[in-house]
């Protein structure tokens, strides 16, 4: 009886984890973006996006155009940046595009953020385009990053809930 219960609980926990993983992976497939959801970490797009807002991304096959808000990864930087495209130059005949970005709340374009000697982004830097916004919900992950103890407490609490779920 006790063994059975323990196995049940383990299976249930596994089910939660795998379904979360499945949802994430299917989102990756559908959106074509390696990270379909991002949390805004800085105020450089205020007042459009605030720290803690969640953005839903989509990659899509269409060419990048000015005015789109893209998420890009720079070489040698861990954290992706969410900024607006302000310049696009597509070379004739070859599949080569030059992209320049800027934060709505910044005075100058992003050349100062790019690695030394890099004036443009190309398609490979872009991880996705912002399609939708959910305000403030991402504050939870920011808090969990800032205070790792909170993360463990939450995980522990969730685990406890799952483990005791069948008893009531």
């Amino acid at each position: 009886m006790n063994v059975r219960q323990l196995v049940m609980q383990a299976v249930q926990l596994g089910l939660i984890i795998t379904s979360a993983l499945m949802i994430w992976k299917s989102l990756m497939l559908v959106t074509g973006s390696e990270s379909p959801v991002v949390v805004v970490l800085s105020g450089s797009m205020e007042p459009g996006f605030y720290r803690g807002d969640i953005l839903f991304l989509n990659m899509g096959k269409n060419p990048i155009r000015t005015g789109e808000i893209v998420v890009f990864n720079l070489d040698g930087r861990d954290i992706p940046i969410v900024h607006r495209v302000i310049k696009v130059h597509e070379k004739t005949g070859v599949n080569e595009v030059k992209i320049l970005t800027k934060g709505d709340n910044n005075y100058s374009d992003d050349r100062g953020l790019y690695p030394r000697g890099q004036d443009w982004l190309n398609r490979d830097h872009i991880m996705g385009r912002a399609m939708g916004i959910l305000p403030q919900v991402g504050m939870v992950t920011i808090l969990m990053n800032d205070y790792p103890q909170l993360k463990f407490a939450l995980i522990g609490l969730l685990g406890l809930l799952v483990m005791t779920n069948k008893e009531s």
Binding site: T66, G67, I86, K87, V88, H89, E90, K91, T92
Partner: peptide, 17 residues
Amino acid sequence: FLQAEYSTPDSTVNQVV
């Protein structure tokens, strides 16, 4: 925003805000 869109001999699509 207002942008200029133009084409030059070596680059067909150019958009500048």
